[in-house]
Nucleic acid binder design. Structure first.
Length: 471
DNA sequence: TTTTGAGTTGTTCGA
DNA sequence: GTCGAACAACTCAAA
């Protein structure tokens, strides 16, 4: 059984298949060298380390851990161990589809059976399509079609008879997934990677988040969102399990409307995978090619201010610092910081996508690429170009008590909430009383919102008239 | 093939 | 302070 992004024992179709077949040798291969420029980012590697550690414990320390080219290592190991079957759950990044197809052929040539399963999505990408077989490019019809096809949970809990492991005790450390500089403290206090952590997180959401999900999910200081994204990315819990438990809890609590909105978000994840399958170039190329002519700016200094959370707009800075400290950012805030980078600073969405890729514990090629293209306006069902988030307005609306801001921008802790959204507009006396020295303890706003908004709108207007479709 | 209606998450302006 | 309209015209889905 080849584990990849399905680091769980429960509800794991490939593992259940292997267990039904006989004794199981569980294997993980760190396959960075196959990944090209989409090698895992630093935060993701931290998570992977701990998730593998949890899986290894659940497997009585018998998880084989290797690093290198899976295309060579797996057939080699399978033949050494006289395996008759290799199973895995499918991954859908373009480089993996290509690699795994070759692997399956290679195994079959050696007379070793190879079977893959769907272990990480509600629907096999390519399943939810229009009646004529072509892919959806708009979310709502995709969602409606998906609703008619929703799968039910086939629960399994595999208890494998394990083949003994002769690997050294430092097998996991040898992958060198952990940072050499110890910057992971904030992540350690925030997260519990692994299957048990995933189930605990789901429970927390069912008890504390789901009841107010529909509106609460927009308020970053409220913990109404599920925070399941990294667990889902690493397959520590199956989406069918999440859906099933959410619907059961919603039925008990009369929270069906809330559950419906949560399901929409789960289906967005499916929509991203569908887009990635049908349009693999979404990872680095505008889906709407008219954006190829957009006059993006390059400014290393401004990009650094954004990355470091020193823009002078507290809601943006809070988000970027939450990202840096915890490897996560609340969804509403992701939209705000992304809009700020792409529209106010007018920098290419791929700059943001790359930074998120490195910093997010839930970094996921499908979701990250589609999310950034959505904000930029170049993607599927994208925000219209004139929709430019105003970080001050958004802050007042969605963090009215400045609770979220003060958590991540502590230099504003003593400033009354009403001035936290735009400190530069606060009365001098209030700033002094709160110990805030603009340009010293907290930055001045790095740009003028009105002027940069107008600049972005003008840039869009200047684009040559051409086909705006996704092809 | 043609037509029709809808399309995640906003902001600003003026009544 | 609240509300509706304008923003710009398009693509996409489905009948």
């Amino acid at each position: 059984m080849w584990f990849r992004q399905d680091l769980r024992l429960q509800d794991n179709p490939a593992l259940a298949d292997a267990v039904a077949h006989g004794e199981v040798l569980p294997v993980f291969i760190l396959d960075d060298e196959n990944a090209g420029s989409w090698r895992r980012g630093a935060a993701s590697r931290w998570w992977l380390h701990h998730s593998l550690s949890a899986l290894d414990r659940a497997l009585d320390g018998k998880l084989w851990i290797l690093r290198g080219n899976a295309l060579e290592l797996l057939p080699q190991l399978a033949s050494e161990q006289k395996a008759s079957l290799v199973t895995w759950n499918r991954c859908y990044e373009p480089w993996r589809i290509k690699r795994d197809t070759a692997l399956k052929e290679s195994l079959k040539r050696s007379n070793i059976q190879a079977r893959s399963h769907n272990g990480s999505l509600l629907f096999e990408p390519g399943r939810v399509v229009k009646p004529d077989g072509s892919p959806y490019k708009v979310f709502t019809p995709f969602y409606k079609q998906a609703l008619t096809l929703l799968p039910s949970l086939h629960a399994t809990l595999a208890k494998p008879e394990l083949v003994g492991c002769a690997q050294p005790a430092d097998k996991l450390a040898a992958l060198r997934l952990l940072p050499t500089l110890d910057w992971a403290g904030g992540m350690e206090t925030t997260w519990t990677p692994g299957e048990a952590g995933a189930h605990a997180q789901l429970e927390r959401f069912l008890e504390q988040g789901l009841g107010q999900y529909k509106t609460g999910r927009d308020f970053p200081a409220q913990r109404s969102v599920s925070r399941l994204s990294p667990h889902l990315h690493f397959g520590e819990i199956a989406p069918q399990r999440v859906l099933s438990n959410v619907e059961r809890a919603a039925h008990t609590d009369g929270a069906e409307r809330e559950a419906e909105h949560f399901l929409r978000e789960l289906i967005w994840r499916e929509f991203s995978y569908s887009l990635l399958l049908h349009f693999p170039r979404v990872v680095d190329t505008n889906l709407r090619s008219m954006f190829d002519a957009f006059p993006w700016r390059t400014d290393g200094e401004q990009l650094r201010l954004w990355q470091q959370g020193k823009t002078g707009f507290p809601i943006v800075d809070a988000g970027m610092r939450e990202l840096w400290q915890t490897g996560y950012m609340h969804n509403r805030v992701r939209m705000i910081v992304a809009s700020f980078l792409v529209k106010n600073l007018m920098m290419h969405w791929s700059e943001g996508a790359r930074w998120f890729w490195d910093c997010l514990v839930d970094a996921d090629l499908a979701n990250n690429s589609c999310g950034w293209q959505w904000v930029a306006g170049s993607g599927a069902d994208a925000a219209p170009y004139f929709r430019i988030f105003n970080p001050v307005t958004q802050s007042e609306k969605f963090d009215p008590t400045a609770t979220y801001i003060k958590q991540y921008v502590p230099e504003l802790a003593a400033l009354p909430a009403r001035y936290c959204h735009a400190p530069a507009a606060a009365p001098t006396a209030e700033l002094t009383r709160a110990g805030v020295k603009l340009g010293d303890t907290y930055p001045m706003p790095m740009v003028d919102l009105q002027a940069t908004r107008a600049r972005a709108l003008d840039a869009f207007k200047s684009l040559p008239k051409q086909d705006q479709s996704i092809r």
